[in-house]
Write a protein that binds this DNA or RNA. Structure first.
Lengths: 218, 218
DNA sequence: TGATAATTTGACCGGTTGGTAAACATTACA
DNA sequence: TGTAATGTTTACCAACCGGTCAAATTATCA
């Protein structure tokens, strides 16, 4: 009997496990560099090292494949923000959030570009994720930041724009990698790049959020 | 005689002027939202309000059209950085650079997305512009920033990463507009959004670059 | 081992894509 | 006004795209 391909009615096969993994890996590679519309199934199949009909046996449509990829990657992608701890020391929480985001930009640039492509092109496939889980998480953390500001632990500032600033500056190194490389040239573009970026961003955010020196003595 | 279409051997006609304008406007709209590969000539022709063969009479290929668009837009896009003045007051130069970039993100989001799409997908069509004119301009301005730091007018910092940070934070509001809107919700997403962003970024960069308080008195 | 289910493949299909050819329409200008 | 150059359209093409189908192959396990 020809069951609906890769049907979840039965337990998943070892082969299913492996092939779906291969496909999603290839899909990440391709979708991240060409966006959804710019990517072709043939291309993904090629990278995955299998024939197009074979790939379509596991994911019936391009959309299905894209969705599966998004679902798998989104959680990981939000982890750094989730770790943001209300109980911690504000300065060091912000510092390590920047670190984590920068590490993700360095170690998982494809994931970053996957989302960047999506959002840039109007987020036609992930709108629900943005207004749902993402917004909820950001709202929660924004409240934490606001409370720190109220307690005088960091400067008063708009928490949402702070989060946007951390996102944009860190993800820049993944999304705009070729530009960064082109501008820095061979000189600064080696290993030290991320270290330099980390140092600068730390200086920027910690300095920018330091509570203004009050005239009163310490 | 059927000259090579829109040949530049003769002076350009009024009609050529108008139609090419129409086409580039439409091309900007389409390329900015779907990237090069994701855009179709039919779509652009449709937005431009003309038939596909008619469009192809003015630009023989999709590549030609894209290149013409890039050439036209790049100069404008770099203007804010060009205005960056070595003779001015550092803090207010940085402040107004941020302003200008933010205004461009607000007023010309399509131009921003056009480049974002290109760079994100590996800059296959604009590599020369990045390593050429862009790098040259950035190198020049980086030197200015470095000299300010040496003179003790702003904190010592990596000028390249500073420029990247200004680019990314400001362009974020154009490129990731849907995400910003999704997260901010209806509440903060009206007119005031850019004002809030400007205020925050000013605070961040001016604070972050303030020369550290030396133990010596003022 | 054999039967049954799971997987893979090649051939194919209708629609879209970038682009062309040639006829037709319009403009500019002597 | 006539005619040559410019501009526009219809019909078309080959390649590509997302996806199907049925046949062939391979894995599973009683």
């Amino acid at each position: 009997m020809v069951l609906p391909r890769a049907a979840r009615t039965q337990r998943r096969t070892r082969i299913q496990e492996e092939k779906e993994e291969q496909i999603l890996e290839a899909a990440l590679e391709v979708f991240a560099t060409h966006g959804f519309r710019g990517s072709t199934i043939d291309q993904i199949a090629d990278v995955a090292g299998m024939s197009k009909p074979n790939l379509l046996y596991y994911f019936r449509t391009k959309e299905t494949m894209h969705r599966a990829l998004i679902d798998r990657v989104l959680d990981t992608w939000l982890d750094p923000l989730r770790e943001f701890d209300a109980e911690g020391n504000p300065a060091s929480e912000i510092r390590s959030y920047i670190r984590r985001k920068l590490e993700m930009a360095r170690d998982f640039p494809r994931e970053s570009r996957l989302f960047a492509n999506e959002v840039l092109q109007g987020a036609p496939h992930i709108e629900d994720e943005l207004t749902g889980p993402l917004k909820a998480l950001v709202d929660e953390k924004a409240e934490v930041i606001r409370s720190w500001a109220r307690a005088g632990k960091i400067a008063k500032c708009d928490p949402y724009h702070l989060i946007f600033a951390i996102w944009s500056t860190t993800q820049h190194y993944a999304d705009f990698d070729v530009q960064v490389k082109a501008v820095l040239g061979e000189a600064h573009s080696g290993e030290g790049r991320f270290e330099d970026a980390a140092r600068f961003l730390e200086q920027l955010f910690i300095g920018g959020l330091a509570v203004a020196q009050e005239p009163s003595a310490t």
